[in-house]
Simulated scan of single mutants.
Amino acid sequence: MVEKPGAGALVADVGCGHGHSAMLMAQAFPASRFRGFDAHAASIAEARRLAAEAGLADRVSFEPGRASDYPGTAYDLICFFDCLHDMGDPVAAAAHAMRALAPDGTVMLVDPFARDHVEGNISPVGRLY
């Protein structure tokens, strides 16, 4: 999945929080443009501040938006980093991503591994969470 961002892609980071993942990708793929969306306005304000501070505001933008209705279409890549499990309607979020993708676009979903039952999550890592 590095060819498109390397050549210049339009990427959405849904549930971006303070924007760290979008900014890391922007640093790695300077030919691409990144749009971060989050429903939490204070996080968007902080993401904008951090992007300006890092000198990335020309290629990385942040807007308030829910995962089920953020603006834009023809995204080459839509990312969900450690957030889909927290969304009120993850099915609606996934459906919107499918509508917002370019015909040959990709959705990248990165979520923590968890077992279905509490007793399966009792471990040193589980205790940290």
Rank of each mutant, 00 (worst) to 15 (best):
G55A: 02
F62V: 00
A92E: 01
A45S: 14
G105R: 04
A57N: 10
L24C: 10
P90D: 01
I44V: 15
H96E: 02
G72R: 06
T73H: 14
G36Q: 04
D58C: 05
A22Y: 06
A41G: 13
R66F: 09
S32L: 12
H85M: 05
E53N: 09
I44T: 04
A47Y: 04
A51M: 12
T106M: 13
L84I: 01
L77E: 03
A47R: 04
T106W: 13
A51P: 12
D76P: 01
A28C: 11
L56Q: 07
M25V: 06
A93G: 00
G72H: 06
F37W: 07
H40R: 11
Y75T: 00
G36W: 03
L77H: 04
P103D: 15
R99T: 05
I44R: 06
V60M: 07
C79Y: 08
C83A: 13
D104T: 14
R33I: 08
A57Q: 13
A57F: 08
A39F: 09
D76W: 09
D69M: 08
D86E: 15
P103E: 14
C79G: 08
G65M: 00
G88Q: 14
M23R: 10
P71D: 12
Y70H: 10
D69E: 15
C79Q: 09
V60R: 03
A67H: 07
S43K: 12
A51T: 11
A41H: 13
P30K: 05
H96M: 02
D89A: 06
C83F: 05
D82M: 06
G55D: 01
F81R: 13
R49A: 15
V107A: 03
H85N: 08
A26N: 01
Q27S: 12
A67L: 06
M25P: 06
P71Q: 08
Q27G: 15
L101C: 04
G105A: 07
V107T: 06
L24V: 11
P30Y: 10
A45W: 09
G36S: 06
R59A: 00
A26D: 01
F62M: 01
D104A: 15
D58W: 08
F37I: 07
C83W: 03
M23L: 03
L84K: 00
Y70D: 02
D89S: 08
E63V: 04
M98L: 14
D69A: 15
S68L: 06
E46P: 08
I78W: 04
L101G: 01
R33P: 02
C83G: 10
D58V: 07
F29K: 01
C83R: 02
C83D: 05
S68A: 15
R33V: 08
D38M: 01
D76E: 10
R99W: 07
P90R: 00
A22T: 10
F80M: 02
G55Y: 02
V60I: 08
A54G: 05
A41L: 13
V60Y: 05
A41N: 12
E46R: 15
A26H: 01
S43F: 14
R99S: 03
L101N: 03
M23P: 05
R49E: 14
T73A: 15
M87W: 03
F81L: 13
A67P: 05
F29Y: 07
D89E: 14
R99E: 04
G88T: 14
R33N: 04
V60G: 02
L50E: 11
A26G: 01
P64M: 12
R99Y: 05
R33G: 00
A22F: 07
G65T: 02
P90A: 02
